[in-house]
Every structure is written in C-alpha cells, then in structure tokens.
C-alpha cells in the first residue's frame, strides 16, 4: 500500500517537472527560465528524498542538501548577473 502511494507521488512529481519543462522551453524572458529552473531543482530535492526512502540509503539525503545549496547559489548568481551588479 505504502509503495503504491509512493509510486503515484513520484509519478506526480515527474509530471510536474515535465510541465515546468514546457515553461523552460517557451520562456519568453530569461527570468522565466530561471524561475522554471528553480522550481525544477526544488522538485528534484523532494524526488531525491523519496528515492532515499525507497532504496533505504540515508546518504542520498546528503546529495539532496548539496543539490539544494548549489541550486540556491546558481539562482542568486544569475540574478546578480542579470542586474549587472556582478
């Protein structure tokens, strides 16, 4: 039962990453693409968390922490670059 629900949850998160990908391709402005990237990286953190539970390995949570850190830094640096204050 728990496994079925978790499978559905993973499918929904993958669907939402796919929908975000449409915005990433369509874009229009660069900031739109950065927002789509941010949402995708945060959804990936949730996905890695579920994966850590399914495979029963706590080490994957470290991967999620580092991934979140890198995504946050990337967004800050791209925003600074767009503002031309870098």
């Amino acid at each position: 039962m728990v496994d079925t629900i978790l499978t559905v949850a993973v499918a929904i998160i993958l669907l939402s990453i796919g929908l975000t990908m449409i915005r990433f391709v369509k874009g229009k402005t660069s900031v739109d693409r950065v927002i789509a990237f941010d949402v995708m990286s945060i959804a990936s953190i949730a996905l890695i968390g579920i994966l850590a539970y399914v495979t029963q390995r706590i080490i994957y949570l470290d991967v999620a922490i580092v991934y979140g850190l890198l995504g946050f830094l990337a967004v800050i640096i791209i925003a600074k670059y767009l503002e031309k204050s870098l």
Partner: peptide, 11 residues
C-alpha cells in the same frame, strides 16, 4: 507532490 503539481500548473 500534489502541491508541487499546482506550482507547475501555476507557472
């Protein structure tokens, strides 16, 4: 995961 789906639809 449903709330994350709402985020992508809103986007």
């Amino acid at each position: 995961s449903l709330v994350l789906l709402v985020a992508s639809i809103g986007l």
